[in-house]
Every structure is written in C-alpha cells, then in structure tokens.
C-alpha cells in the first residue's frame, strides 16, 4: 500500500456521480458506478470493522456495504429517506469486486473538464483520508471532492481486515 499511496493520481476529466455527505459534496467516476439503490435491509456481519455496515442481497448476490461516513471518520447520522446505497465496482488487488457504499444523498451527474480539476489539497500529516482524493472539481458555485474509490476500499484498514480473513 505504501508505494501506491505515494503515487499521486490525479483525476481525469469526465463524468462524475456526485453525492453528499453532511455539507460536503463528493464525486465518483461514473464508470465505477453500477447502480444506485435506496436503503434496504442490511444484515450486520459481526466482527468486521465499524465502517462495514453488513451485507445486502443484491438480486441474489450478497455484497458488502460500507458506510462512507464511518470510513471517513465523520459523525454518524441516522438513515433518512434520502440515504442511498451506491453499488460500485472496485478494483481489489487484481480483480473487480462489487460493493455498496452508503451516502447521505445522491446529487447529480457532473461533467467536469480538465480545466476544472485542481490537484488534491495537502493537509500535512495526520489525515490519511486525504489520500483518497484525486482532485477537487471546481464548478461554478461549488467544489466537489473527487474520490479514488479503489483506494478508499483498499485502504490500510481494509487490507488488515482481509489479511485477518486470510
């Protein structure tokens, strides 16, 4: 992981699905998104990290669900009508896996051009989540934080879980 996190990947221009966590707006490469679902029955899986909410039945497939708020160490909020599960295809080691991420609200699909992307900000040490950011999308009236979802799901914690799992 160490080597990977030192490589600074910058977001490419293209379409992004934007979603909201609290007051912040985030963007995911649209190609990573498989579908968006409303909240459904999540089965808690014991003995997993706290950001793993559990598993759901996605048309016969059991896929894990991760709470992005928890993952980013943000305060938890109760689920609302707008809470959504975004099903994403994540590259894990050498294969694609399907998982869901819980976000407060799905916002829109944005077209972000090259000129609108700024390199990720530097927060100095102590904020490892900054690693997940590939750039800041600067739009007319807002700033969207562009995420590298692969890296979010491949973070050191996830790695630890998987190692534990053998």
């Amino acid at each position: 992981m160490a080597t990977e996190s030192t490589i600074n990947r910058t977001a490419q221009a293209g379409k992004f699905l934007s979603f909201i966590l609290g007051d912040e707006e985030y963007g995911l490469e649209i190609l990573k998104v498989q579908e968006i679902n409303g909240m459904m029955g999540i089965t808690r899986v014991p003995r997993t990290p706290d950001y793993v909410r559990g598993v759901i039945n996605l048309r016969g497939r059991v896929i894990p669900i991760v709470s992005l708020r928890k993952k980013f160490k943000m305060a938890s909020v109760p689920d609302t009508e707008k809470t959504c599960i975004i099903v994403v295809q994540v590259r894990y080691v050498d294969r694609e896996i399907t998982m869901g991420i819980i976000v407060d609200e799905v916002s829109e699909v944005l077209n972000i051009g090259d000129g609108q992307i700024e390199p990720p900000p530097s927060f100095g040490g102590g904020m490892e989540e900054a690693d997940f950011i590939t750039g800041m999308g600067k739009l007319e009236n807002k700033v969207v934080i562009l995420l590298d979802i692969d890296r979010v799901m491949n973070g050191t914690e996830m790695e630890a879980v998987l190692q534990a799992a053998g």
């Binding site: 459904m40 029955g41 089965t43 899986v45 014991p46 003995r47 997993t48 793993v52 559990g54 598993v55 759901i56 039945n57 016969g60 497939r61 059991v62 896929i63 894990p64 894990y92 294969r95 896996i97 399907t98 998982m99 799901m153 996830m158 879980v161 998987l162 534990a164 799992a165 053998g166």
Partner: peptide
C-alpha cells in the same frame, strides 16, 4: 451464498443465505 471476497473468512461466519423476506441471514 458467498459473502464476497472482502467478507470471506469473517470469523465465525461461513456464508450468507437469502431468506424469504429478501434479507440476508
């Protein structure tokens, strides 16, 4: 059902099953 690669090997849990209400047990 397999729990998927990320969850595979979660301790004490061998897998999942879809119940009649559509939820996973």
């Amino acid at each position: 059902k397999s729990l998927g690669e990320t969850m595979q090997g979660t301790d004490g849990v061998a897998g999942g099953a879809i119940m009649s209400n559509g939820n996973v047990a």
